[in-house]
């Protein structure tokens, strides 16, 4: 396989994952705006922060007006993380790697692009937002389904998955990092209802409310959430889950290519760090510090993968 093709697959699936994550962030923000209008602006600001586009947003807008933020996150072409930009980038990458995809996967991506382009042609009215967010989720599921149902489990599949899990780990870590202050012991001791809403928002942003309840009942605590999203390997959006998957896929590549890769060593040590560190220790040394380090490691891993597999000449 061409190095460029591997890179194209990697980015195609990073962007697909990003579009879905952005849609989820909008969903969580919208929920707060509806249930707690007073904290809506703060929440939108933190959504933008999570998507790392707060700075870009403020270059074009004066305040965190809900409609403006939603439009920026859904449709704005100047925002490279907007759902439309991400889908477009995913589809361009898919065109580039067309020969590595089954017809089903290609058509699912192409159809996503066509239907979202149509749905996001004009600013989305509030009344239509839930429908549009649902559409984004469905399209995303369609691509995933086509991938799992029709693709060979070879290096092509590995690069697709590696893109997905790198992006997802990055996203989950950001969600936690932006909200880490509500998970801090000093604040949580107050136990006000606002905190509960914030915690729920975290879970909602990763589609994890139901799973969390299955595991922990209705007892939503900062430690429980941190444990769930950092260390729980059953939770498909947790850091431990993503890193385990990355380790698995890089392991398959090492096996198939009969070679030694620095990226595999990196991901293994990252995985060890996650699984061996107790959640109490994480809080002890500082959640924010821990997450900052993780985001750095994750980015370094991405760079090493790009190098190991010659994405760029």
């Amino acid at each position: 396989m061409l190095g460029r093709t591997a890179g194209g697959l990697f980015w195609m699936f990073r962007y697909l994952e990003r579009s879905e994550n952005t849609a989820r962030l909008i969903e969580a923000g919208f929920r707060i705006a509806l249930t707690r209008p007073d904290s809506a602006k703060d929440e939108w600001a933190s959504v933008l922060e999570t998507a790392s586009v707060r700075h870009d947003y403020l270059a074009r807008h004066d305040d965190f007006d809900g409609a403006a933020v939603i439009d920026f996150l859904l449709r704005d072409k100047t925002n490279p993380s907007s759902v439309m930009s991400a889908i477009e980038a995913a589809r361009n990458n898919a065109r580039m790697v067309r020969t590595a995809l089954t017809r089903e996967v290609w058509e699912a991506v192409n159809e996503s692009w066509m239907s979202l382009k149509e749905a996001l042609r004009r600013p989305v009215r509030e009344a239509d937002l839930p429908g549009i967010l649902g559409l984004i989720r469905r399209q995303s599921a369609l691509v995933r389904g086509a991938l799992h149902g029709t693709m060979l489990r070879n290096d092509i599949f590995d690069f697709a998955r590696i893109g997905t899990f790198l992006e997802r780990a990055d996203n989950t870590a950001r969600i936690l990092d932006v909200k880490y202050y509500v998970l801090l012991p000093s604040v949580s001791q107050i136990g006000s209802s606002l905190d509960n809403v914030q915690w729920e928002t975290i879970l909602r942003s990763v589609a994890g409310q139901r799973s969390y309840r299955w595991l922990n009942g209705t007892d939503i605590t900062p430690r429980g959430i941190a444990e769930f999203l950092i260390r729980d390997r059953r939770m498909p959006r947790s850091l431990a889950f993503c890193v385990s998957k990355l380790s698995g896929n890089l392991g398959y590549l090492q096996e198939q290519y009969e070679n030694q890769y620095a990226s595999l060593d990196m991901v293994r040590s990252l995985r060890g760090k996650l699984l061996e560190t107790d959640i109490e220790d994480i809080f002890e040394t500082g959640l924010h510090e821990f997450l900052t380090e993780f985001l750095g490691d994750n980015a370094a891993l991405a760079a090493q993968i790009e190098k190991d597999f010659r994405f760029i000449g």
Partner: peptide, 29 residues
């Protein structure tokens, strides 16, 4: 891409290729 796909050939761009030992070679993973 259609032809490359259907004849089982690599679809390459100029940036994927260079001369290596007197041959044209493509950069694979």
């Amino acid at each position: 891409s259609f032809l490359a796909d259907h004849m089982g050939a690599e679809l390459v761009e100029g940036s994927d290729l260079r001369v290596v030992d007197g041959r044209i070679a493509m950069r694979t993973t």
